[in-house]
Amino acid sequence: MMGGLGWNLIRGWTLLVYVFMFLPVAVVVLLSFNASQFGSFPMTGFSFRWFIELTQNDAILRAFRTSIILGLLTALISTTLGVLASLALVRYRVPGANVISTLLIAPILVPEVVLAVALLLFLNFLSINKSFALLLAGHVIFTLPFVILVVQARLVSIKRDVEEAALSLGANPVQTFFQITLPLMLPAVLAGALFAFTISFDDITGTLFWKPGGVETVPTQIFAMLRNSISPEINALGTVMIVMTVGLPLLGAAIARQMARKSGT
């Protein structure tokens, strides 16, 4: 075994790093239930007051709706494109498959700011104005790699001979896809969709660059509110965001596991 002191130092340090990362989050959640006017310690009592106020703030509700619609559309488009791209790359011999694959994954590797500015410059060059569609396109571009990575990994593990068996039994390629391939990769497809939704839902960098005037998502709304004052409402909003972005993937994972258990895959 390794010497005690060295390990203890590493252990202590790791603990500190986690505390540093998660303490602020804990503080936000805690303060969102604070009854006091001021979003700071000491807490004066426990209340849902700020959550109720959230539901009466039009700007926030609008931002929320925008975020949800944007997230859902991003998930839908990204997942569809991601599934099709994965199928093409894994199941068919596409010329230049490696290059295409790298290009599709690239947005993960490029810093988001660079990607954001690049897309903006490109649209300027084409003299296209900022719009919701552009914002959506941006979100699709940088969520797509996640979907492709997850779906591809799953698709590789689905044996080709299962599909061949379906074909030999008389199912045409489309029927084979919907009867065999899609159900078998469904957990990955759902996971990809959840990824896309959550990433889109809490993205701020790209969104700040791409959103047209007057449109706010939840993160940009929080950002805008912070410029005025630190209202306890922000803490409540933060808590809601945390619940959504942590809870959704957990829920998704649970559903996927349930499905996998039932089908025995």
């Binding site: 044996k159 299962v162 061949e164 074909l167 030999s168 039994l169 008389g170 065999i180 895959t265």
Partner: peptide, 20 residues
């Protein structure tokens, strides 16, 4: 004639049953 129109029965080495 594509495979799905040939009316053949195929048994694969690793069974290839539909797991779901």
């Amino acid at each position: 004639v594509p495979i799905h129109k040939r009316n053949l029965g195929i048994v694969f080495q690793n069974y290839a049953l539909f797991p779901h």
